[in-house]
Design a protein around this nucleic acid. Structure first.
Lengths: 116, 116
DNA sequence: AGCTCGTATCGCCGTTCCACGATGAACGGG
DNA sequence: CCCGTTCATCGTGGAACGGCGATACGAGCT
């Protein structure tokens, strides 16, 4: 194989600088979006997961399970919720999956909350 | 009666300047608090109500019911949720109730979200 | 006192959430 | 090729959510 060192599955895609989100922060669509994001954050376990992922600025994998007092399946479900809300990304790295926060979505959430 | 003009039931209490919240934005308690607040915001109707209350910087009452496509009882329940989360205050004004946002709680939410 | 208006609460329903164990699918190593 | 590791998904049970109409409450008016 050509690359002896594992390539980082969480390397940023193509967004070196933060392109400011052009979408509006008000109106029915924004309300719906804010509700969706807030709902995803609206559970202590999910908050903990998000905190974990931002603290380890890079991405980690199912070590999350070890950090939380929950079963593996439960953690997986919470990750799914966060992924569906767009707050988290899961990149496949061989047999394991590497999760990292989606900075764009997080910024979007902050913008929406800030508009209140 | 001594006062010919109705006194504003939503007049600010005693907090002219914004005393910055001294509580931490991280740790288990903060996680729980953020989850609670986010959960309250995690519904489109509740977002709309919050928007209404911040737009009319002053407080309004059950006009909220007229603004939303929901039954009165449903709106009342959403208001209850927001009140229990501390995001909204309801002051009794004679036969009707005057709701207004609780700026401290809103600032707190922004601080907690900002800490992510 | 009785009435009315504006809210809150109750009871009911169907849906969704949350937790778990068990099972399944994908990948890498021996 | 089989096997262990890692994660996702399924199925289930209990709890909470979200909607509504019906009903109760409380303050003011006549």
């Amino acid at each position: 194989m050509p690359s002896p060192q594992k390539k980082d599955p969480c390397a940023p895609i193509t967004v070196p600088v933060a392109a400011p989100d052009r979408r509006p922060v008000e109106g029915p669509e924004a309300d719906e979006e804010l509700a969706l994001l807030a709902k995803a954050v609206g559970h202590p376990a999910r908050v903990q997961i998000l905190r974990l992922l931002v603290r380890r600025e890079a991405c980690i994998c199912g070590d999350i399970v070890d950090e939380l007092p929950l079963a593996q399946s439960t953690v997986s479900q919470h990750l799914k919720v966060l992924k569906q809300a767009g707050l988290v990304r899961g990149d496949i790295d061989g047999p394991r999956v590497c999760y990292c926060i989606e900075p764009r979505a997080l910024r979007r959430l902050k913008a929406l909350i800030g508009s209140l």
